[in-house]
């Protein structure tokens, strides 16, 4: 039992064989470069706009490099966004940890302790990850009010833990399904019970599963907006809400929303760049069966 078994054939590793020659190879690269331009132009625009003096930002000179580099935008944006970045961090870290741990336990139970009704319960759980959250919004904040968590970051954390359960359960269930039952049987013979099997066999093998789930959940929660905008108050606002308010408000100077966008994007982008492999795996696992 090793990483191979956990790897459910979702990697995008290069295909080795199969030669392709031809006079049209330049067209392939032309196409790829064109696409690269499409994906990167906005990045260029964001960065140069963020680095311009507010007065130097005119629509006509949008694409020009700044004449003086105004790093101050980031200082201002940092000052404005630091509290919301901290909220986002607390939120994403706690809710990710909570939903990953519960999801791991659920995945273990659903894949290794089959009991009657599981085939009905599991799809009912999964449906929860597809619903438009508008359909639960009004009762949700009534509920949070009744338990005294409305406006508190803890309320938002609870919300994200619960609505994260379907996807984390799904990923862990598929992940643990690859671990042969024989391993569990031998542990049972050794006298291991429910928790013993989890602690001694599954949990130690779960590292890459946790990485996938943690990346996925962290990204989703960090980026979420609807709950964030309806369940928070000023002091508990995550970065997405602050950014939407700044950019959608009456800001006339575009350097700040652009610098703010970069700050809001950096954490998830870093994760993507450093742990891209696991990121892709989480993304493919999102399509139910993978």
């Amino acid at each position: 039992m090793s990483a191979q078994a956990q790897d459910v054939g979702l990697d995008l590793g290069r295909r080795r064989s199969g030669g392709r020659r031809g006079r049209f190879r330049w067209m392939i690269y032309a196409g790829l470069l064109l696409a690269t331009a499409f994906y990167l132009l906005p990045v260029y625009l964001v960065v140069v706009t963020a680095l311009k003096e507010p007065a130097a930002i005119t629509l006509a000179d949008t694409w020009r490099l700044p004449e003086t580099w105004n790093w101050g935008s980031f200082a201002t944006a940092w000052e404005a966004f630091a509290p919301t970045l901290r909220n986002s961090l607390v939120l994403a870290v706690s809710a990710t940890a909570g939903s990953a741990l519960l999801g791991s336990m659920n995945g273990y139970i659903l894949s290794k302790w089959r009991f009657p009704g599981a085939n009905v319960v599991f799809p009912l759980m999964l449906f929860g990850m597809f619903i438009p959250y508008q359909a639960i919004l009004i009762p949700l904040f009534q509920f949070l009010r009744d338990v005294g968590l409305y406006g508190d970051l803890a309320g938002l954390i609870l919300t994200h833990v619960v609505y994260g359960l379907p996807i984390t359960t799904l990923i862990f269930r598929n992940f643990y399904a690859e671990i042969p039952d024989e391993m569990l049987d031998s542990a049972k013979i050794d006298g291991a019970g429910f928790f013993g099997i989890y602690a001694r066999i599954l949990f130690p093998l779960s590292v890459s599963g946790f990485v996938v789930v943690v990346i996925w959940q962290f990204t989703q929660i960090w980026n979420e907006f609807l709950f964030a905008v309806t369940l928070t108050r000023q002091e508990t606002q995550p970065i997405t809400v602050a950014l939407a308010n700044l950019a959608g408000g009456e800001a006339v100077n575009w350097n700040l929303p652009m610098a703010g966008s970069i700050l809001a994007a950096l954490p998830t982008l870093l994760i993507y760049i450093v742990l891209g492999r696991y990121f892709i795996r989480g993304l493919l696992a999102g399509s139910v069966k993978g």
């Binding site: 904040f141 949070l144 009010r145 409305y150 406006g151 905008v229 309806t230 369940l231 108050r233």
Partner: peptide
């Protein structure tokens, strides 16, 4: 809109 969610949320 935010005020209303807060008032409905008892906050």
């Amino acid at each position: 809109a935010v005020l209303k969610t807060r008032m409905l949320g008892g906050d």
